[in-house]
Design a protein around this nucleic acid. Structure first.
Length: 111
DNA sequence: AAGGTGACCGGCC
DNA sequence: TGGCCGGCCACCT
């Protein structure tokens, strides 16, 4: 209950909250999250929030991809194909940094 | 204080 | 789907 927020603003927590709600075997896009936050055009900010998600261990950022189903953030994960491994581990097939049947595994944040 | 950057999206060809 | 461009908003230097 501190009026002064810590270095983590609400905006970031908002994103983390959504991402944490993503069920296993499901993926969503930055735009979907941004839309859930009421900032449909601010998908970029979601990406920024994900950048800081490295501090949060409960944030499955590997389930978040861009609208094309491309593992845009895979480059930010440890190693080079860690993100892909995590997704495949949940039953999601990834081909050439791209999620197969992306729409099928797509999950939209429910509010 | 101002400018540059970014894990993006949507529209158009 | 692929490439290019404009928009959009918070963070960093």
């Amino acid at each position: 209950m501190s009026k002064k927020e810590t270095h983590t603003d609400n905006f970031f927590e908002r994103v983390y909250e959504i991402v944490r709600l993503i069920p296993e075997g499901k993926v969503t896009s930055y735009g979907a999250i941004a839309k859930a936050l009421g900032a449909t055009r601010s998908a970029r900010m979601v990406g920024w929030a994900m950048n800081a998600s490295h501090n949060m261990e409960d944030v499955p950022a590997h389930r978040v991809v861009n609208r094309k189903g491309l593992l845009s953030g895979k480059h930010h994960f440890e190693g080079t194909n860690l993100m892909q491994q995590l997704l495949e581990n949940e039953g999601i097939k990834v081909k050439d940094n791209q999620i197969v049947d992306f729409e099928k595994h797509f999950w939209e944040p429910d509010f």
